[in-house]
Write a protein that binds this DNA or RNA. Structure first.
Lengths: 134, 134
DNA sequence: ACCTGTGTATTAGAAGTATAATACACTAAT
DNA sequence: ATTAGTGTATTATACTTCTAATACACAGGT
């Protein structure tokens, strides 16, 4: 038995953002920044529930949505782990279609703010590098 | 009396996206693509309500939120028009802070999809050019 | 003054969302 | 078979959000 649990999640009950969504976001960030490697198991819903003093179902909701998204994988009797492989059926084109709506938001917002396109590109480039190196 | 009204808005009642939000998004796009020039008046809330078979209050909600955002301007007795000037008090730094959360979404999503950063940059560049030229 | 045109404050009700209590199905190890 | 560990289906409830009905204030033209 290795001492697994450490820090994990931190929720802000005042922020108005639903608890299950905060968990989802934090899992995604932990994975994107490689703090949670592929194949690693996440804390159980009851562990989270105790830590955060919430109901296990709330944690379960976060997990099952992440599973539906293809981020996590459920192993019977053991729990949720970070999915090993990328989704198999996902072509490059499908991936692009998933990200285009968000990019369009960026475009509309930057027009609205009259931000120079080059400035926006520059900012995104910088953010992409940051997150990649952590 | 010029024949003002034409097409304007199109709502999808099945999409789950609230009507007032669909109106907001479409107004922003119409402005970003210069189909609605600065100073132009928008259709009245009752016009929209009749066209879309909704309640005037729903259109009003869209308009007043757009006004609060600084996109539209209210003229007593005449209606809503596209704001002439950019918001005066907005510094570059404030503008950047508004767009960073959206850019972070892009970063997280692209990590999740394992999209190459260059590919993402390329897509955004292309979208920014498209919308700028229309 | 009147009528018709703006947008909206208020109120109400329907619909949806977030959280939780409980009970269940399943796995692994004893 | 039992025990202790996974996640979850179901149900209930509080809460928020969305839409609408009504009535109002103001502007402009007659």
């Amino acid at each position: 038995m290795e001492s697994k649990a450490k820090y994990y999640f931190q929720i802000a009950t005042t922020s108005g953002v639903p608890i299950y969504r905060q968990i989802i976001d934090q899992v995604k960030i932990l994975i994107a920044t490689k703090k949670l490697p592929k194949g690693e198991f996440l804390p159980s819903v009851r562990q989270i529930a105790t830590e955060l003093e919430i109901n296990p179902m709330t944690a379960s909701k976060a997990y099952s949505l992440l599973e539906k998204e293809g981020v996590l994988e459920f192993v019977r009797g053991q729990g949720m782990k970070v999915r090993e492989s990328d989704l198999p059926g996902e072509s490059l084109e499908q991936k692009e279609n998933e990200i285009i709506p968000i990019l369009n938001e960026v475009v509309t917002k930057s027009k609205q703010l009259s931000l120079r396109p080059n400035k926006v590109i520059e900012m995104l480039t910088s953010l992409l590098k940051e997150k990649g190196n952590e």
